[in-house]
Structure formats: C-alpha cells, structure tokens
Design a protein around this nucleic acid. Sequence first.
DNA 1: GTCCTTGCAAAGTGTTTGCATCAAA
DNA 2: TTTGATGCAAACACTTTGCAAGGAC
Lengths: 132, 132
Amino acid sequence: MEQVRKHSRKRDAILRCVRSTDCHPTADWVFSRLKPEIPDLSLGTVYRNLAMFKEEGTILSLGVVNGLERFDRRIDPHSHLICQCCSRVVDVEAMDLPETICQEAARQTGGAITGWKLQFVGLCDKCKATQK
Amino acid sequence: MEQVRKHSRKRDAILRCVRSTDCHPTADWVFSRLKPEIPDLSLGTVYRNLAMFKEEGTILSLGVVNGLERFDRRIDPHSHLICQCCSRVVDVEAMDLPETICQEAARQTGGAITGWKLQFVGLCDKCKATQK
DNA sequence: GTCCTTGCAAAGTGTTTGCATCAAA
DNA sequence: TTTGATGCAAACACTTTGCAAGGAC
C-alpha cells in the first residue's frame, strides 16, 4: 500500500524557503528563517521535510560543509566554490569535463562511473576583497 | 613559547595504521584496528592525533562520507571514486583539468580559486560485479 | 474517519574537551 | 622535573526517531 503525500502548509513553506535563496542553506537556517512567520514550527519538521525533498529529488544536498549539511535549490548540473574563510557556497555554472576523464576513472578503478562532482576551494568575492 | 612535540608510541602507531591502508579510514576504523594490539588505546587519542596530523599536513581528510570523516594517507593531488553502494573510496590518479576551468570559476564568482576537488560517484569494481 | 504530518523531547551518532594521571625528554 | 600525551567520561553539535495530538482529505 503506497503512502499518499498530503498537502501541508509547513511543507510548502519549507520548500519555498529553500527555493528563495541561493545561499545553500542548512536545516537550521531554514528553521530560523521560518520561525518568526510560523511560530509553532519545529526543527524536526524541517529536517524531515528536507530529507523528503532530497529523497524525491526536489532539491539536492551538496554535502557536509564544516559539519553542516547544505541543501541546494538547483538540481541541474553545476559546481560550487566553497569559501575557506566564511564557508559560503557559491554556484559555478556547469563546465564540461573532457569525455575521457570519466572513462579513465572507470578504467583505473574497474568500477562504473555514474556522475562526478567538481568543487572549487578558495575565497568568495567578499573574503577576497577583505583579505587584500 | 612554542609547544614541543614529544614522541609517543601511540601516535606513531596511529600514523602507521593510516599509512598501512588505502581504504581511506575513519577514526573508528583506526581505533578498532589498533585496539587489539594496544589495549589501553582510547578513541579520543585517535581523534586527537588524526586532527593533529591533518592540521600539520601529514595526512589529508577527503571529507565526510555518510556522516564519517575519511582520512587519506596520500597528500599528492588525486581524485576519488565514492561507491554509492558500499561507501568504499577508491583512489583515481590525478587528471589535468583544462587550465581555463579554474579561471572561469574565478571569473564567474569574483573570488580566488586556490584548489579544486574532483570526485567520481558510481560503483566500485566489487559492487559493479555484484550488481551485474 | 482515516492516515499523513507535526511538536516535542528523547535518543543517536560522530566528535571534541576538561582534567587528573602518565610518560617522554 | 617539566611539560606534552593519554584515558576516561562528560559535553557537544547535528540529526533522527517514537509517540501522542493535530490537520488534510
């Protein structure tokens, strides 16, 4: 018996919140942002719904940065710059890798490559300006 | 006044242990592996020493996989294949990215790129064989 | 009325830390 | 003897979960 997804005002608000920003928010960021507007929201609900959206592919997780899972409203292929200074995550438009690179990885490992993730490390524009 | 690093049998064993494998171990893996041989070893010591090695650049952390930090004895540039099935991390030799890719990322973000990390996702050789 | 969703709080999990004790130099 | 290293357990931070109550359909 399949579980039927019902509608919920809080669930909508959580998705809307993630989609409202390109800051690649954490669960707690979403919670803090919605709390004033929805005083009886609980952090568990935010975690539950983010996990659900992620599982169904509505949003993505870009992994753990500094111990915090970061979510991404974008689900199209692209990369990120992670600022070493302030932990900001900045989108970088998709760039093609040479076709041969995945083939080579598959050859070396003997495994099957289904995807890849390119992540840049450095300073975001703000931190770069500050550290001048 | 600078802190002088003393010699310690346990610290040596921890580094030796990480260097003995290419499985990209977790703190707990190292602990479990050394415990029989060093019964009075404590997990805290493993964490403390791994953090120390990582900070001084003796080993690297390749990040968090499935909630566990994974360490790498290799400090030279290379990539990894992360198996979606068994979470195994397999080394992939360094492959050159087109020079323009970092420049493009810097241009797009306005930041400074100091490095990049290319990670492959898929199945390791064993899981690929099993899932045939 | 059914059953999904939520709040709440407790439990989980990986990691860090304070402090008394141990051991290297 | 001095001072860094360690064991132990408590503290931490983030996340997940169980359960009773609330809300969608």
